[in-house]
Amino acid sequence: MNINWKYNIGLLFIAVLITILPFMIVKNSDFAGADTQAKNTTQEISKDFEPWFSPFWEPPGTETESMLFALQAAIGSGIIFYCIGYLKGKNDANKK
């Protein structure tokens, strides 16, 4: 079976479009995490609520954060594409 690249790339294009659309629609926002908002809402609702447990370790700064973040995405996609390559190789070898 062959891959219909036009169809797949078209789909990926739509995904990219949906992702960048908020930048055009919503102005003056820094797109903070939904969890930060939830934290604030929790404190609004339960005024005397204090988180009773805190993480053992948190990344020291935004630079380290973005490094770890990029690393995670890179290694994850590395595995996905390794597997795709493996399947393609096996598929091609079986055809012969």
Binding site: A32, G33, A34, D35, T36, A38, K39, T42, P51, W52, F53, S54, P55, E58, P59, T64, E65, S66, L68, F69, L71, Q72, I75, G76, G78, I79, Y82, C83, Y86
Partner: peptide
């Protein structure tokens, strides 16, 4: 090989994205 690779991502990758899951300590015991 893939098992090892999978272990490597799980063991070495760290992520500092804000949690979209429930934050530590935000649910009572």
């Amino acid at each position: 090989l893939t098992g090892l690779l999978a272990f490597v991502i799980f063991a070495t990758t760290t992520q500092a994205v804000q949690a979209m899951h429930i934050m530590e300590g935000f649910l009572p015991p």
